[in-house]
């Protein structure tokens, strides 16, 4: 239960970090909070030749309100999002989701960039990024680029990141005025990974749904938006029939695993129940409409 030996570099800037990654020729790994990587090192599931510590790079932990949305630096901690007034004001669904991330000591140390890059298929932050149409800011040795969250996540622990790139920030567009939201998760114990989790946002014009977003996690290799269910919700009131149809659509779209925690059938059952709950919660919170 001790990490294997590795070379260690404390990067002083993003440029420094990606240059070190490029020099490591695929054998390097970034570490920040280390809350996913350290257990893998302790178990020796990971054995990088060189560990590049980005945790001391200055100015990467901000939470800024910009015209495009809330831009969160890669080194911001989960606990900072959980308690940020800007998050509470513009993205309350994100604050709620953060309360479900592991435990206090993990949230105090785990970083936003780390969670997104790790891409655990049951983690809350990737779900939020996909739900909220977040954009990831990525820097490599040659250039910087921006990638929508839905394109960033490719599979379990697999992202669009190249070996020599790092996530530097993520921008969450603000929820539209009057938009309602819901987040629901079931785990075996408080702080455990989600057996299944769902999140939704609904906007209404009068009693008519004008925008619907629905995303789920823990029930496939990556967090998924369920566009078929979203389309079915649009253009009328939120009825029990629509809720049932959305839940069935979600259950048909996902491909859950069986493991020691729960069977695939149970996860599929759960995600249908949670889908109905988040839609009802979103409608109840929305202004100008709802059940």
């Amino acid at each position: 239960m001790k990490p294997p030996a590795f070379d260690y570099i404390a990067a002083t800037s993003v440029e420094d970090a990606v240059a070190a990654l490029a020099r490591s020729e695929g054998e390097g790994k970034l570490i920040a909070g280390g809350q996913s990587l350290m257990p893998m090192l302790n178990f020796r599931l990971a054995g990088p030749a060189v560990l590049i510590d980005v945790g001391r790079i200055a100015g990467l932990d901000g939470i800024e309100e910009t015209d495009e949305g809330l831009t969160v630096g890669a080194l911001a901690r989960h606990a900072a999002l959980e308690t940020s007034p800007g998050v509470a004001k513009h993205l309350p669904v994100l604050a709620e989701a953060m309360r479900h991330v592991a435990h206090l000591a993990i949230r105090n140390r785990g970083t936003i960039g780390g969670s997104l890059s790790h891409a655990d298929p049951a983690a809350e932050l990737p779900l939020m990024a996909v739900l909220l149409d977040a954009v990831l800011h990525i820097t490599g040795p040659e250039e910087s680029r921006e990638v929508p969250a839905e394109e960033f996540f490719i599979g379990a622990l697999t992202t669009d990141l190249e070996d020599e790139e790092m996530v530097t920030a993520v921008t969450f567009p603000y929820l539209p005025a009057g938009c309602g939201w819901g987040f629901e998760e079931v785990s075996r114990r408080s702080g455990d990974f989600a057996l299944a989790a769902a999140a939704a946002t609904l906007s209404f014009e009068g009693s008519v749904i004008s925008e619907a977003r629905l995303a789920v996690t823990g029930v496939d290799d990556l967090p998924l938006r369920i566009s078929e269910a979203e389309e079915g919700l649009m253009g009328g009131e939120l009825t029990e029939e629509k809720i049932s149809a959305a839940a069935e659509s979600v259950q048909a779209s996902v491909n859950p695993n069986s493991d020691a925690q729960a069977s695939a059938d149970y996860r599929r059952h759960l995600i249908g129940v949670l889908t109905a709950r988040v839609l009802r919660a979103a409608a109840a919170r929305a202004t100008g409409g709802g059940l």
Partner: peptide, 24 residues
């Protein structure tokens, strides 16, 4: 446990509780 599950090794790092087994 040495993998961040049990909390026995919790210390304060600059005032924040952290798992000392998940920190180099």
């Amino acid at each position: 446990c040495e993998h961040g599950v049990c909390g026995a090794c919790t210390v304060l790092l600059n005032g924040d509780s952290v798992r000392s087994c998940l920190c180099l």
